[in-house]
Design a protein around this nucleic acid. Structure first.
Ligand code: FES
Ligand code: FES
Lengths: 144, 144
DNA sequence: ATATATTAAGATCTTTTTATCCTTTATTAT
DNA sequence: ATAATAAAGGATAAAAAGATCTTAATATAT
């Protein structure tokens, strides 16, 4: 569904969100440990999210990653996915045709579209805080 | 969503189905041309489908691929997907945790599960003939 | 100011996926 | 029987994704 990079991105964002809610900044090492991801690879991904200003980063001692509370209120899953995987989820044809097109649909177009639409809605509606809340309460998990 | 191999598998199956309905067998070259896929790679994929007895193949002059009418009546998209991509679509966690688990869910588990379930239903309900019919009528397309 | 902790950036390596090529085997037509 | 045709199978290559390493930049604390 998503690339590995995107999965890490989402997991990391949720973890950072939990910490940010109590005003803490978290280091790369901390994050990679919490979400069970390769550190260096995770660094790249966070770099990208930071460039896109979805998360904030501070260098140096006591530095690390965080998400401004203001941003956090609005941050959607869709934004993370878009930053890492681009729009292939939204625009890609289920059977791999160059683009998904209403005018020249592939055989699964209609059935696919419905599901993709739902996925899209879900990603656009779901906020990262919302997910962070479940994690904070110990109801959900980021590794196994 | 699916691997490239799986996309080709589905496209090829639908094309073979259309031809099989009128009793024709189709060659690899014909298929690859019709679905715009790399010939040798497509061969590997068809080999797999043939091994799994989802499609039939005959060597030699006037040989090629086909799907027995009896099989065709029951052949579902889910079978093709399973033969090529395995069960990752059904069992994989949306955030890449080792398995998707109800007892120790990831933060998106519930939202994800709903969508995955729909996808699964769709694949299990949809027959290849059904899709072939739209293609045969010129309503849908396998390349662009 | 200096040393230190921490992210940024670029280069490189590894693995997986996608794709090709070549030889063998089976089938058909002559 | 023989030649021609088409898929099967195995080996290899290219591209993409995933992951690591090394150096640079920057902020903090002393
Ligand atoms: S054309 Fe294939 S999903 Fe729309
Ligand atoms: S645990 Fe992640 S989708 Fe079920």
């Amino acid at each position: 569904m998503f690339s590995k990079a995107c999965e890490y991105a989402i997991r990391a964002s949720i973890y950072i969100a939990v910490k940010s809610e109590s005003g803490q900044r978290v280091s790369l090492k901390d994050i990679a440990g919490a979400i069970d991801s390769p550190e260096a690879f995770t660094a790249k991904i966070l770099q990208q999210l930071s460039k896109d200003q979805l998360i904030d980063s501070v260098k140096g001692p006591s530095g690390g990653f965080s998400i401004e509370k203001k941003k956090l209120q609005h941050l959607r899953l869709s934004q993370i996915v878009y930053a890492i995987d681009g729009d292939r989820i939204y625009k890609g044809c289920g059977l791999g045709l160059k683009d998904c097109s209403e005018r020249k649909p592939c055989p699964v177009h209609h059935k696919f579209k419905a599901i993709r639409e739902e996925l899209k809605n879900m990603l656009e509606k779901t906020t990262v805080t919302e997910l962070a809340s479940g994690l904070g309460k110990g109801l959900t998990f980021l590794q196994r």
